[in-house]
Amino acid sequence: MTPFDYTRAEGSAAAVKQVSGSAKATFLGGGTCLIDLMKLHVENHDLLVDITPLPLDRIEATAGGGVRIGANVRNSELAHDATIYKNYPALSEALLSGASPQLRNMATVGGNLMQRTRCPYFRNGFSPCNKREPKSGCAAKDGYNRSHAVLGVSEHCIATHPSDMCVALIAFDAVVKTHGPKGERAIPITDFHLVPGDTPDRETVLEHGELITAVELPAAPWAMRSHYLKVRDRASYEFALASAAVALEVVDGVIKTARVALGGVATKPWRAADAEKSLVGQKPGAPAFAATAEMATKGVAPRQFNGFKVALVRRVIVRALETVAAMK
């Protein structure tokens, strides 16, 4: 790591001021992604402002019947929170399918929203990579791209968004609360992450120095019937080859609400909105689910080594929907 100073935040406003005041400062949460990338010299900062002392570590009910999750809540705590477990089970499952118990004890909700890609060409520090070094090219497109995205790609970047948690959050219409140099704002999570386009280095809409303070989940009774399904090579401790967070609300044998969000296959946490719409009004079952899976993968752009993800993610969607449909 290049040398940096370390300070503990004394209040959100002070932290925002400290980081926004220096181009080479950033927030330190659990550190599981940031310290990793700093060790690889992919990220270099002069100042880390440790925000974990800030009182952003509560999970509380909102007036609207939803849940407000502090940005510093650790992944393990959130996963095992009784309300989340009961009312938003796919979020709990997504969190528990990510990383390892140790890493989940460290990683925070805010940090997980800011998680960066596992693309080996991004991480190796020297290959052409438009995300790491704008305008340098993309080694992954014609390189080894088994882990890469098939959705949301551009000619400049095909790096997969690695988060499991965000896939569940996007299925539940989460809202990201921030405190920035220009004040506070609430960002719907669908707008929070950016597809690479021609600026793959810009991954979220956050401004420099804008601090995530919380994530709000709106009330969603149907979310109790949700499920996160993740396929990977190992049985644990591995990023997804393909995953899906799905939810179904079935009234009188007909689907009233549907959610289909995908992980491991896209450049950002992927909400398959058209596919969801196609389910509404249908009877839950194999024909509808297969058509939805087909629709969710419309416009895929596979490369040499990741073509299998298209078929795989379709099957993941179908299986996840079948599982939810069978829930009591």
């Binding site: 390189g143 080894y144 090579d233 190992r234 049985a235 644990s236």
Partner: peptide
């Protein structure tokens, strides 16, 4: 049999030189 493979890309770079991407079996396997 199921997991391990060191991958060299078309330029001869090792693209999975760590323990996240070179998959050793874990307890759950």
């Amino acid at each position: 049999a199921l997991l391990e493979e060191t991958v060299y890309d078309g330029r001869g770079l090792v693209v999975n030189p760590d323990l996240a991407d070179y998959r050793l079996p874990v307890h759950a396997d």
